[in-house]
Amino acid sequence: MRKPLLSLVAALAVTACATTPMGPAAPPPPPPADAPVAIPANIIAAVDNPLRPEVDTRRDADRLPAQVLAFAGVRNGAKVADLIPGTGYFTRILSKAVGPRGHVYAYVPDELTKLANREPAVNAIAADPAYKNVSVLLNLLPNFGAPEKLDLVFTAQNYHDMHTPLMGKPDMAVVNRRVFQSLKPGGVYLVLDHSAQPGSGLRDAEKLHRIDPEAVKAEVTAAGFVFEGESRVLRDAADKRNVSVFDPSIRGKTDQFIYKFRKPAGAR
């Protein structure tokens, strides 16, 4: 089950030390996927931002934005793309987390705006003086890119949609490669989505709005990314992953994976 955000989580830290009688010390093993992550002050302040609408804040207990963005490594001054931002739930938080020296590019696929036949919801955020560091980018999904190299490309509950007619079923090899090219060496690609049953691949992307995490890992690493790890803060074993994420029995409580991929430091 998901763990609620603790008020003192920023003070949490896990330390370990070890010595060896001879030879160089072995590198420490990676922390467990469900290990506590210290929440930086910039992210705490961004989540606590009083300008956030109530429609967003009442979802925080289910979405755990502080833990998610801490795992992504969002820092002051970062250049970030919010890929398919929807109503801008994470766009607002990212804006305050990166601060005035950073920038958030809300990338809205033209395929989606044409289908919806209305302007993107995030346009209102970009027009708000409180979010001066937000820009909206409109383009076809395969043409993903930004005016400058990025530290992070973030997409939440959308990767599965890119495999459906909703987004025009773009060639994901092209999309992921464009994401790779848009990042600085060492940059992060964070994918959060509703999980499908193991071995289901892309089968449930359109009907259930879910995707097999291993299918995502295979596609993203094929573009040159290194899989760095998973956060399990949104995992929920009570979800059998056999109904639509919009089903009243499970909506807002789905089992979700958070995968972190990194562009190698030496890559161009």
Score class of each variant (00 low, 15 high):
149 K>L: 02
37 V>P: 03
80 V>L: 14
253 K>P: 01
20 T>R: 12
86 G>F: 11
202 L>I: 02
154 F>A: 06
136 V>Y: 00
62 D>A: 11
227 F>P: 13
170 P>G: 03
152 L>M: 12
266 G>Y: 07
188 V>P: 03
99 G>R: 07
90 F>T: 10
104 V>N: 11
88 G>S: 02
185 P>S: 07
69 L>W: 03
142 P>W: 14
171 D>E: 05
1 M>I: 01
259 Y>I: 13
201 G>C: 10
256 Q>S: 13
248 P>K: 01
168 G>S: 03
31 P>R: 00
81 A>M: 08
153 V>Q: 00
88 G>Q: 02
219 E>M: 11
82 D>C: 11
180 F>Y: 08
96 K>Y: 07
86 G>W: 05
89 Y>M: 02
255 D>E: 06
108 V>C: 14
86 G>K: 00
192 L>H: 02
245 V>T: 14
202 L>D: 11
164 T>A: 05
20 T>N: 12
236 D>R: 08
92 R>A: 13
28 P>R: 13
98 V>H: 11
131 Y>F: 13
148 E>G: 09
163 H>T: 01
109 P>V: 03
38 A>S: 01
94 L>K: 13
81 A>F: 12
41 A>R: 03
265 A>W: 15
16 A>T: 04
35 A>D: 07
126 A>N: 09
84 I>Q: 14
194 H>Q: 10
165 P>H: 01
101 R>I: 02
73 G>M: 15
50 P>M: 13
237 A>K: 12
85 P>D: 07
104 V>R: 05
231 S>L: 11
253 K>S: 03
227 F>L: 14
201 G>K: 15
131 Y>H: 01
132 K>I: 06
263 K>F: 02
66 A>L: 08
